[in-house]
Design a protein around this nucleic acid. Sequence first.
DNA 1: ATTGTAAAACTAACGACATTAGTTTTGTGA
DNA 2: TCACAAAACTAATGTCGTTAGTTTTACAAT
Lengths: 186, 186
Amino acid sequence: MTPRIGLDLKTIVKAAAEIADIDGLEAVTLATLSRKLNIRPPSLYNHIEGLPGLRKELAVYGIAELNQYLSQAAAGKSGDNAVRAMGEAYLTFARRNPGLYEATFYTIDMEDKDIKLASEKVVNLVIQVLQHYGLQGENAVHATRGFRSILHGFASIEQKDGFAMELDVNKSFHFLIDTFLLGIKR
Amino acid sequence: MTPRIGLDLKTIVKAAAEIADIDGLEAVTLATLSRKLNIRPPSLYNHIEGLPGLRKELAVYGIAELNQYLSQAAAGKSGDNAVRAMGEAYLTFARRNPGLYEATFYTIDMEDKDIKLASEKVVNLVIQVLQHYGLQGENAVHATRGFRSILHGFASIEQKDGFAMELDVNKSFHFLIDTFLLGIKR
DNA sequence: ATTGTAAAACTAACGACATTAGTTTTGTGA
DNA sequence: TCACAAAACTAATGTCGTTAGTTTTACAAT
């Protein structure tokens, strides 16, 4: 006896992502979300574990989406081409989904199994691409951490309007990726 | 006729910074802050313009503190030594003041005069240090943006416990700085 | 010492929010 | 048609930010 089907988690999380992208991550509340879905706030508790649960689901969804972007960008490429493509894809994702991107690193619990699993996929993808440079053992991890730092740092600062000057931001990004590629071939 | 003196802004902002560093930036509310200061929440409105105003003051204070760290680190040094010292100082600040550091880039209004002023000081300091490498015009700006991205990205990911593996985080940071220094000497 | 004054701190109240408890609705499978 | 379990609901509570209006209080001029 399968009981009635109401909202499903995917619909809820996507609605939350829309709010985050349009009005900012702070605007994602059980109140705004329930209004968008035409239900009363307590009904959400049938699907998520309160506001913290919603934020977690949003983070998992965002990390999975980011992984999609990166995988597709790197497919069929290697070396500098792959690295550049992944860099572009990362920035594109962050620009197209500012709120969802913010959710992927704001108030996330790294101990959580789902978060861990989704994150590992991204890390493994980057490690795989960087293997082309023949980095030995520890250095492969260092390089991966460095690449993530560069991408997140740039995307994050850009999102906060942190690049004050007029100068073309895309050029700055390419400069940074090139600097990384040069430095990595030590 | 100078009226009575109550709390001053510095005391308030420092108390807020303590809450942020101990319990996280989210825990900084007018309620928790007023409890810490032994006053009622509405009294805070005599000093700050609500919660948004408090967050702004916290950001300005944090950026100024960061600038202190960086200035002292770079004093008397140049080139790679200065860059490395600033990198260390940046990370040290973020580690010692996690909540305050987060406040420097979370919900900040870059249009705000005070925020702009404090930020420019940091940017100018970095530009000054990077001049040693003889970067021409645009490239100086690109390099500055890149350095900021690296530092913020690394500090931010580390703070969220984003570096899953056991491998020494400090080594990763040095690897990244070295990569940047190598790449910058193109 | 006394007193006026302006800032600072207060009480009271409101609306928005997350959350819990308990009730009603409803779709599906038997 | 009907049982039932999930889904959605109403009602209520406590916390928060904020506003309005009142009281307190320390300093400065008398």
